[in-house]
Amino acid sequence: MNILVCISNVPDTTSKINFKDQNEAFDTNGVQFIINPNDEFGLTRAIWLQQKSGAKVTVVTIGDSSCEPILRKCLAIGADQAIRIDAHPLDGFFVASQLAALCKKETYDLIITGRESIDYNGAMVGGMLATMLSLPYVANCIQMDVEGTNVSLQREIDGGKETLISTFPIVLGAQKGLVEESDLIIPNMRGIMQARQKPLTVESAITLNQATSVKIFEKPPEKGPVKLVDSNDVDGLIELLQNEAKVL
């Protein structure tokens, strides 16, 4: 089985978000980048298939050379090879189109994306990619059981879950549940050493028309101070919520 795991390079969850160039660009100065948490759940699930049935795991990211450390980390976690498509990811459609071009050159049985990236939160790359390839897509995927060429999956829905069946090839949107937090693989010394020998190839991007353009960023307005109510005055809180905030 050939598995492709799509990796998005995102600011660490605690990063302060700032903008530059008259708020037209994200300021990466001082920001630490990590593997998008949803992608890490997906990668771990892929590694399990590799360990169990010898699947080959390829990781791919669309980005400039600053993304290579996280690709090396994926290799240290256990991926067999990495591909970097050399382009600035302009939007979800751009990323999905690059991935679709790659998937038309190589054949993958299972393509794993994350539920969403925590930077642009588009939650769109997986669904777009699947549609471009005429493949089925399962968003918010919280379980996958492989039975030969069939696959049974669960999708988290509002207020519950849904069970689906399909055949390979398929595209998933991974999230917590597919594996648990405690299952995430922390690279050991051996993994880190091996990662240096594993192939990381750089491919050029295809050219295409951009579907959307981000014009300007802004931060939410500063919030006023919290209104504190004495712990013996629960009535006071209810009063404020009823008459001032008007939410009760």
Partner: peptide, 20 residues
């Protein structure tokens, strides 16, 4: 068509336009 969207898990907003 130009819309305001939240991004960076609600830490910021951006204004985006369509080219389609």
């Amino acid at each position: 068509l130009t819309v305001k969207r939240s991004c960076f898990t609600n830490k910021a907003f951006n204004e985006s336009t369509t080219n389609e």
